[in-house]
């Protein structure tokens, strides 16, 4: 019997794990459950109803916020993933030349406190005299999407047999044709997975968006925060539940595509 199996049998491990799960998921469960509450007060259950979901669909301010968020997420995840792909290929070349810095520079943004990035990005736009709105939102989101999109692309690149690229070169491929005919198809699972991850990161972002968004570009998280300041309403639960649903679906898709055609 292995030591690992023994640890799992220690008394108390089971209940502790269940407690941790409850701690993690209880708030989500409350949000989801109360989104089906028929009454207007978040803290009192009055019966099952889809009334709040109907309101989500009918309210134009919700629709507007969703529309802004979707446009930003699509544009930023596409641009961020494209840049991440170039960065991933650049890293390969830099590592080959012996530079250990490349990966560090591109991954540090994952660890920098988001508020610092938010303040920095805002100062940057002020300095350049950019008017805050969709453009600044998309630019800021693109920037923080890059390190996230980079993760699955680099993971994919690492598991590929480098001889495949040598074979392509040996058979006469070079430059852009090598990229389009070999590199790109090999990296597709990583690219799709990275784009989906970036899409969710962009869709869920509040802090940076709040700093750089203009009055006409209210994203869904900013809208929700505005709503909640005017008092909790089951409407927020309904929107949050839908957002949760989209997140889980997209992240699942991201995970699955990352595992596609895993080379032996």
């Amino acid at each position: 019997m292995t030591g690992q199996a023994d640890t799992r049998r220690y008394p108390g491990i089971g209940p502790a794990a269940r407690l941790a799960f409850a701690f993690l998921y209880a708030p989500l469960a409350v949000v989801v459950a109360y989104s089906f509450n028929s009454g207007p007060i978040v803290s009192r259950w009055e019966g099952f109803s889809l009334v709040w979901y109907r309101e989500v669909l009918e309210r134009s301010d919700v629709r507007d916020a969703v529309w802004v968020s979707l446009r930003v997420a699509v544009a930023a995840s596409a641009a961020g993933t494209a840049l991440a792909l170039l960065a991933a290929l650049g890293i390969v070349a830099m590592v080959r030349r012996g530079s250990p810095l490349a990966v560090g520079f591109l991954s540090t943004p994952l660890l920098v406190p988001e508020i610092v990035t938010a303040v920095g990005t805002l100062s940057f736009f002020v300095l350049l005299d950019f008017e805050r709105g969709m453009t600044t939102l998309v630019l800021a989101h693109t920037a923080f999407c890059i390190p996230f999109a980079l993760l699955p692309i680099r993971a994919r690149l690492a598991e590929l047999d480098p001889a495949v690229f040598e074979a392509a070169s040996d058979l006469g491929a070079s430059g852009f044709r090598l990229f389009r005919r070999v590199t790109l198809p090999l990296l597709v699972p990583g690219i799709v997975s990275g784009a989906l991850l970036a899409f969710i990161i962009s869709l869920d972002d509040y802090l940076i968006s709040a700093f750089v968004a203009g009055p006409t570009s209210t994203t869904l998280p900013i809208f929700l925060f505005g709503l909640i300041r005017r008092g909790a309403s089951p409407l927020i639960n309904a929107v949050s539940t839908l957002l949760l649903l989209v997140t889980v679906a997209v992240l699942t898709a991201s995970y699955i595509t990352g595992k596609w055609r895993k080379p032996k």
């Binding site: 047999d161 001889a163 495949v164 090598l178 070999v182 090999l186 597709v188 055609r261 080379p263």
Partner: peptide, 20 residues
Amino acid sequence: VPPFRRAVNTVFQSYALFPF
């Protein structure tokens, strides 16, 4: 001459086939 213009071709140890 760069590898992609040499009139020699290689059979790699790992075969290095294009999986897609």
